[in-house]
Design a binder for these strands. Structure first.
Lengths: 136, 136
DNA sequence: ATGCTTATTGCAACTAGTTGCAATAAGCAT
DNA sequence: ATGCTTATTGCAACTAGTTGCAATAAGCAT
């Protein structure tokens, strides 16, 4: 099911703002920031406000269509869930980012569910620490 | 080794501001916010600026003396590392917070170290999701 | 105890993100 | 196609946190 279908199905309105924000996120091949989304949308439709971008991102997060990740650098980055789950290891020293395989987290998710009855949402985890190089 | 000893050993100066911020963190039995620390310090020493609080917190984080956690609610909360490691499961619906045992995360840490050579800093993890009650 | 170096501070101006509210427009019923 | 309801938007004012820079003071050498 596409994002627009999910929105409509849940009773949310398909405004041009929302459609443009969605297409900015889907069109981006990297993790896009709210500011970058705003610039793209604003270029086509100048009166759109940044608060609409933030509100839409919050809605998309709630519906599980988009993930928000703190990759460092002072702003959150957003990513379409459709494009697949992945996680990040972020080195505090050199700031480099490594991808972490999904499979590594599945056992943890299961333990938390079994022992706490808690359905953990680890859809886009960012783990800070020190990488091989910087530990030498 | 105490926090003040660590600071001095690393060549940082022991200013009254830093000592008061440390004592506010140590004196707190819960996870204290920057604003709460500021209020306590400001009460005794009114010209202290909030930016000094943030800068000191950043330093203490870097030295591994204090952990910063996003427990929801729009502000970070701070906690002395000395008081022991623990983690949180935060329900997105009811906002309740459950403590997660350290042991659950150790296998994950080991896998990340073995497979990626990455020393993950999972000293104070916050995992969002849905709790038993809210999943019914 | 005094002077000197330089880390640290307070200040002011900034950035990312949030919120209340009146105006607008999506999308349903007719 | 038109009107109506109410979710959504834009705006302005806000909050949490950050940054550059000149003034200050910690703590070392004398």
């Amino acid at each position: 099911m596409s994002c627009t279908e999910t929105l409509r199905e849940q009773g949310y309105r398909l405004t041009p703002q929302r459609l443009m924000i969605l297409s900015a996120i889907h069109g981006s091949d990297h993790h896009i920031s709210a500011e970058e989304i705003y610039e793209q949308v604003h270029a086509k439709y100048p009166q759109v406000n940044i608060s609409t971008v933030y509100r839409t991102l919050e809605l998309l997060k709630e519906l599980g269509l988009v993930t928000e990740t703190d990759l460092g650098g002072g702003k959150f980055r957003y990513h379409s869930v459709e494009k697949g789950h992945h996680h990040h290891l972020i080195c505090r020293k050199c700031r480099r980012i490594f991808e972490l395989d999904e499979s590594v987290l599945l056992p943890l998710k299961e333990i938390i569910l079994r022992e706490y009855g808690f359905k953990a949402d680890l859809s886009h985890l960012a783990v800070f620490g020190n990488c091989v190089e910087c530990r030498k």
